[in-house]
Amino acid sequence: MSADLVFAQDGAGASGGTVRGQIVDTSTAQSPIEGVEIRIVGADGAEHTATTDASGEYEQSGIPAGRYLISIYRDGYGPREGKPVTVVNGGDHFFPLKMTKKDNIVTFFQKFGFVFWPLALCSITALTFIIERLFTFVRSRSRIGTEQFIASIADSLRKENIMEAVSTCEEAGGPLANVLKAGLLRYSQAQIEERDISKEEIQEAIEEASLLEIPELERNLPVLGTVAVVSPLFGLLGTVTGMISAFTTIALEGTGDPQQLAGGISQALLTTAAGLTVAIPCLIFFQLFDSWVNRHMVEISQVSTEIVNQLIVGESN
């Protein structure tokens, strides 16, 4: 009878295993985390749960033998999911884990160190001038389509109605219309004074107007170009200083905690990512704005030459 009782007790003890461990954070102190929810899910979908105590420890007994996935959750920390563990009957499985605190705005930017301030200045500068340039280019768009505008000007010149052409320029607005308006007004002034006007004189008036319009389109573009170049350099500076700090820690304390070392290196690389995040949009918008300026310059040159030739031909006739 005694033998039967011992056999029964051994069978009960072998009916499952125990999974326990401690959950700490990834800080240097590795402080225990209380209130972490542990979910142990088997291949058949059976789920066992536990919660850590004040010392960060948890324990779940009576888990049937088999392969399980452990996931841990807690508010304010990043979840960790799908950690495999194999449970054997009568086994005591120690399974420690670490959790990383979720960053808020303050703690996230604290990782950048002193490089945060120049990168913040670059990002604010880039955003300010990108919005300002977009507003300028939208405002400088002609209210009349280019082809329609040129056809209207040409029609007015064929009818020798210069003031109608000037009115069309005022109605259209934009750099092209302002430049042509200057040439037309110079031609109109010569007609009022009843004197001949040369092609060079009209072109001079157009060039003077261009010197006012083109710089307005190009304004602040050098600032965007500078920010696009400098931002990655600031990010690289933060990475270099962070790596120096990480390797200094290795020299003093060794590589006993690879996770902590990897965390320091990832924070160092964060500054490079931030620098590229600022530089890439800045470079894209700089190239876009520069192409718009070049297109306006080519358009002004071609259309003004055509209009000047038409004025001179009309003057000769």
Score class of each variant (00 low, 15 high):
residue 4 D to A: 15
residue 14 A to Q: 13
residue 15 S to A: 11
residue 17 G to I: 04
residue 19 V to N: 04
residue 19 V to Q: 03
residue 20 R to I: 02
residue 32 P to Y: 01
residue 32 P to S: 03
residue 32 P to E: 04
residue 35 G to T: 05
residue 36 V to E: 02
residue 42 G to F: 04
residue 42 G to Y: 07
residue 42 G to H: 06
residue 47 E to S: 08
residue 51 T to F: 07
residue 52 T to I: 06
residue 53 D to P: 05
residue 53 D to Q: 05
residue 66 G to N: 01
residue 67 R to H: 10
residue 70 I to V: 09
residue 73 Y to H: 10
residue 83 K to P: 09
residue 84 P to Y: 02
residue 92 D to A: 07
residue 108 F to Y: 11
residue 116 F to N: 14
residue 118 P to Y: 01
residue 126 A to M: 09
residue 129 F to D: 10
residue 131 I to C: 14
residue 131 I to Y: 12
residue 132 E to G: 14
residue 136 T to I: 11
residue 140 S to G: 13
residue 145 G to D: 12
residue 150 I to A: 12
residue 151 A to N: 15
residue 152 S to E: 15
residue 154 A to S: 15
residue 158 R to T: 15
residue 161 N to R: 13
residue 166 V to G: 14
residue 177 A to N: 05
residue 180 L to D: 08
residue 180 L to Q: 08
residue 183 G to A: 12
residue 185 L to M: 14
residue 186 R to T: 14
residue 188 S to T: 13
residue 191 Q to P: 13
residue 193 E to S: 15
residue 198 S to P: 13
residue 202 I to L: 04
residue 206 I to T: 02
residue 210 S to N: 00
residue 214 I to G: 00
residue 215 P to Q: 04
residue 217 L to H: 00
residue 224 L to M: 03
residue 231 S to H: 00
residue 237 L to E: 00
residue 239 T to E: 01
residue 240 V to F: 01
residue 243 M to A: 11
residue 245 S to F: 07
residue 247 F to E: 03
residue 251 A to N: 01
residue 252 L to S: 06
residue 262 A to N: 03
residue 263 G to P: 05
residue 268 A to Q: 02
residue 269 L to R: 02
residue 271 T to D: 12
residue 274 A to G: 09
residue 282 C to V: 06
residue 293 V to Q: 04
residue 294 N to G: 12
residue 296 H to T: 07
residue 297 M to V: 04
residue 298 V to W: 08
residue 299 E to D: 11
residue 307 I to K: 07
residue 308 V to Y: 08
residue 309 N to D: 14
residue 310 Q to E: 12
residue 311 L to H: 00
residue 313 V to E: 15
